[in-house]
């Protein structure tokens, strides 16, 4: 294992990436897909309003992007801190 200060910095950086990712996760699904749907009814994606589309399709694409982005960022972070396998 790397020394303590480096491993602390690694964990802090990881938690920061997680928090930002979860903020996006929340904003797309619970935000645009549910709570904000009435407010966003003027915006359209093709034949659907934005809230409907986020709830039925859009959020899933965002989830995919989030997981793969997290995987790439963490691989980089693992290497920077020398904790990769």
């Amino acid at each position: 294992m790397a020394d303590n200060s480096s491993s602390n910095a690694y964990w802090k950086a990881n938690v920061r990436i997680i928090l930002i990712s979860l903020a996006i996760w929340f904003a797309c699904s619970f935000g645009m897909g549910i709570i904000l749907r009435p407010a966003l009814s003027g915006i359209h994606i093709g034949g659907a309003d934005l809230g409907f589309w986020m709830a039925h399709n859009g959020s899933i694409y965002v989830f995919l992007g989030l997981i793969f982005t997290y995987a790439v960022l963490m691989n980089r972070l693992d290497r920077e801190h020398g904790v990769e396998e």
């Binding site: 409907f52 039925h56 399709n57 899933i60 989830f63 997981i67 997290y70």
Partner: peptide, 26 residues
Amino acid sequence: IIAFGGYATGAYLMGWTGGYVLLALL
């Protein structure tokens, strides 16, 4: 269920996929 429930059934679509974000990150 979606056919007869319409928009509100998006809860299933988001719920059963969004959990994978939590799995991957947490």
